[in-house]
Every structure is written in structure tokens, then in C-alpha cells.
Nucleic acid binder design. Sequence first.
DNA 1: GAAATTGGTGAACAATATATTCGGTATTAT
DNA 2: ATAATACCGAATATATTGTTCACCAATTTC
Lengths: 183, 183
Amino acid sequence: MDRRQRKTREAIFSAFIGLLSEKEFGQITVGEIIEKADVGRATFYAHFETKDFLLKELCEELFCHILDASGKESCGHSHIFACDAPDSVFLHLFQHLLKNDNNILLLLSGQNNELFLQYFQEKLRQLVVDHLPQFAQRKNRCLPESFWIDHIASTFVQTLRWWLANGMAESPQTITEYFYMAV
Amino acid sequence: MDRRQRKTREAIFSAFIGLLSEKEFGQITVGEIIEKADVGRATFYAHFETKDFLLKELCEELFCHILDASGKESCGHSHIFACDAPDSVFLHLFQHLLKNDNNILLLLSGQNNELFLQYFQEKLRQLVVDHLPQFAQRKNRCLPESFWIDHIASTFVQTLRWWLANGMAESPQTITEYFYMAV
DNA sequence: GAAATTGGTGAACAATATATTCGGTATTAT
DNA sequence: ATAATACCGAATATATTGTTCACCAATTTC
């Protein structure tokens, strides 16, 4: 990809993230984005069909990055469930989030948090499927598998939501324990 | 309230619900709403400051109705937890939803479902607080109370989401059991 | 039932936002 | 060097929002 393209794309993403942490998605205009990114109007539309597509591509980039990083490491080990399993994917996820690459925390806890958390939950579902053996408990035998998978993804996001809302006072280890206790 | 006001308000709500089940909230214009409701432009703005306020008032009306109906009945009994408790508030909720007053199911399962489910979860939180004694389990002793409350509300909405996505094939009793098992 | 109050109409309007076009310029790759 | 590509920026058509105002109709009050 052309260096100019990369720089433009990055400038737009960066400006967009800045705006998303200031105001609601619906209130952000293309005019503001291109002004902050300092690119021409036509250039914006050459990269993104609409503002919604920009959001979608941003989500893909953010979450694919974080999920790939945490997901590929400790996969398929088929562990027995344990609160303090040192190689828990979910512990990795919480730790990775804390590092705040790409200002992801700004987005997940800002005004548009639900937008991103919802998207995150969708992406998370696949990760849960890959690591299902970790959750070999009694109660999931009585429940449909799809229900069980949704529940784990949902509980993870809810735990994250709570963590963020409370200023991330707890350590990733503690939050992971909370998560495993709730699920 | 004047009958004219009631009729106008009802016409706008009804048109809005119809549109919400067809297309995304962001794509709906005031022009479409007033055309479908067959009211003047000035009339719309006399009733609702903006499209967002219209949404907010619709949510209030829908969820206050359904939560009041289910909530006030079996409150403060301080039951021991039981999957098949005949007077569970949550069973009442699932049953009430199934009746589909005001086409609430159309909204909760349509394109804008996340919008409403999110709002529902907020409202639900208070109901959970009122009925917390029902959930006297071992594990909630180890977890912060606010975490626990969020988790119950979140799990209820997730259960509802799953039920809707699977065509509501299960009975309210079965779904309530799923919910109690997951939480 | 007449008068006063309130609500609705519809068209016009300014302000703002979207998405496209196009000739010209700068950068990159070969 | 040259061809291809990306960016610029201003102009433009179109669409949406939210307000105003004079006029008409329904409702309430006495």
C-alpha cells in the first residue's frame, strides 16, 4: 500500500478516535473529521464510503488486533477450569486492554462505549468457541451450547464494562477471578 | 391531556415503531415520521424536541409499563432461590414480553434491537436491586455487590436476546430456568 | 352555545451536512 | 524519466434539520 494512503488512513483514524472520545458518533460530521485529519474532502470519500463504514473498519482493526494477540497464544490446551490459570486467554485480554494500544480504553469507556462494547462482544464470541473446553462446568450440560457461548461472551463484556466504570481499580488478575466466578 | 394531543402523540409513536422495524434509527428522518404519522412538521416539533427525545420517551413508555406490571407484584417476599418459583418476577417478565403489547417484540428483535435491549438493561438494574434477596447464593459473597447486580441484569438481557434470536421456541418457564441456571 | 384557549396545518426559510465531480498538483513506483 | 496513482480544494446538487408565522379547527370554560 502506498505510503500516502497509509498516512491518510492513519490521520483519518486518529482524528476520528479523538472526536469519538469527545462527542457522540451521531454528532460527528465528515467536515470535522477531515479538518482534524487535515485531508481533503474528496480524499476522505476515496478511502471510506461513508462515516459508518469508517466506524466499521476502525472496529475491525482494533478488535482483530487485540483478539488475535490474545487468542492465538494459549489455544487448544484443553485446560481444566481454574481461577488463577496463568495462561488464561481472558487474563491475557484484560492485561492487553490495560496496555491501551491505539487508545482503545478511551473508546471503550467514553461516550460511545456501547457502540464498541457491542462490537467487541460479537468478535469475542468466536474466541469463546475456540476456548470452550476451559469452561467445562456442571451447569453447561443442562443448557444449549449456543446459549452457553453467548453467556460467556456477554459476561466478559459486562465484567469489562464494570471494570471500566469503576476506574479499573482492580488488577487484571482480580478482574479475571471475578469473571470466572460470575460465568 | 387533550384528545388531539393524545391522537397526535400516538400517531407519531406508531409511525416511529413501524419505521424502527424497517430500518436503522440513524437512517430514519423526521420527514418520514411525519409523513407516515400524517401530521404537520411543526406539530412534530411541538411534541418532541428532537428525534432522540422521541426515542427516549418511547423507551420510557414501553419499559416503565412492562417493568411496573411485573415488578410490583411479588416484591419483598425474600424467597429462597428456586428455579421453578411460581411467582418469580423474571418469569413474569418473560411471560409479559410474550404477550407483545405495543409490538415490543418487533423492537427488541428488529434491526434496532441493541438500542432497546441496552435501555432495557438500564431499567432492569433497579428491578434487580429490589429483588436481590432472591439471589442469595454462595458466589455473590465473594464479589462486589454492584458487580453482582450488573451481572444479573446483563444475564437477563442476554437470555432474552438468545430467546428472541432463536424464535422464542422455548416456553417462558424453560427460559426462566435457563436464566436462573446461568446467573 | 358563545367566547376564549389550545392544538394542528402547511408552506417557507436559514442553516447545516452529505456525497460527487473535476482540473490541477505532488508523490511514488518502475 | 515516465507513467500511474493519490491528494487537493473548490464548486455543486441534494437532503435534513429545526424554526417561524398566519390561519384554521377542536376543546374547554363560563
